[in-house]
């Protein structure tokens, strides 16, 4: 019990906990669509593309959230445009853009004279260093994302499942597609401080992927993803505190472990149940 309550006496830990719950929720909600749309690679790309934005924010002395936001949203929309307007294969386009953007960030970073520790922490995240001011902006941005998803719930679902029929029946599928890319970009921006550029895609993908193994109903799947995302974030945060190890990595490892469990034990795609089915077959 002490193990659970004791950390909560520290203000920084409570802030980290709130951030973990926020990031876990937003990532799971948006991640559910990301997984169903097969856009995991775009998440990876957009998170790396945020790096030059962070460097720019540092150089021009503007809030990190703004720099990362502009770079991430810009890249997401750029990828959307390239996919829709050119004949380049989607994965190729994403690969070129994301590594290019990341290289730009590293190039610029290396050109800055002197040591920039703050920037480096964005690569791997530092949820325990989140300030009250940071937290307020994160909550505002996270709430905005959740409200947009809630408002456009039906439309996003239809456009994700059957974009052709949805478009033919009058839904602005192209617009929804771009809007969704913006949501992915903002979700990544919200999560950067907590888990960092390198790991953020796991927060986006893993809870939803786990839930997909466990539920065949869209609403329940999303709810389950949120439970897994938030639960994993809280558990991971505690574990990192107890073991005194990197918080972002620990959170991701917990979520990955839950995914592994679902994969083996899950009722639908579970490896164990598949073997049971196999032996019961005549």
């Amino acid at each position: 019990m002490e193990l659970v309550v004791d950390p909560l006496t520290h203000a920084f830990f409570v802030r980290a906990m709130l951030a973990a719950i926020l990031v876990g929720t937003v990532c799971a909600v948006v991640g559910t669509y990301v997984v169903l749309k097969g856009l995991a690679f775009i998440g990876e790309a957009v998170s790396h593309a945020a790096f030059p934005g962070l460097v720019a924010a540092f150089v021009f002395k503007v809030p990190f959230l703004l720099g990362a936001g502009v770079a991430a949203v810009g890249t997401a929309l750029g990828i959307g445009l390239v996919i829709r307007r050119t004949r380049i294969r989607t994965d190729t386009a994403i690969g070129v853009i994301f590594v290019g953007m990341f290289a730009l960030g590293l190039f610029w970073y290396s050109a800055i004279k002197g040591f920039v520790a703050d920037l480096f922490s964005f690569l791997f995240g530092n949820i325990l260093a989140i300030s009250t001011g940071d937290l307020v902006s994160l909550v505002a941005l996270g709430a905005l994302i959740l409200v947009v998803v809630l408002v456009l719930w039906k439309e996003l679902l239809y456009a994700t499942f059957d974009p052709l029929a949805a478009a033919a029946s009058g839904l602005p599928v192209g617009l929804l597609e771009y809007l969704f890319l913006v949501l992915v970009a903002l979700t990544i921006v919200v999560s950067l401080q907590a888990v960092g550029i390198i790991l953020v895609v796991a927060m986006l993908i893993t809870p939803a992927a786990t839930a997909q193994l466990l539920s065949i109903h869209f609403n329940r799947l999303m709810l389950l993803a949120v439970v897994i995302g938030v639960g994993g974030a809280i558990l991971g945060l505690y574990a990192s505190y107890w073991l005194n190890v990197a918080s972002g990595a620990t959170i991701v490892l917990v979520e990955t472990a839950v995914f592994g469990l679902a994969l083996v034990l899950g009722p639908r795609t579970g490896l164990a149940s598949r073997r049971r089915r196999g032996t019961s077959a005549p």
Partner: peptide
């Protein structure tokens, strides 16, 4: 369409009402 998508028969038919 992806037939592994997590929706039921009823969900899909309801989509016809969404627009």
């Amino acid at each position: 369409v992806d037939w592994q998508f997590p929706v039921t028969v009823e969900d899909v038919v309801m989509m016809g009402r969404y627009p």
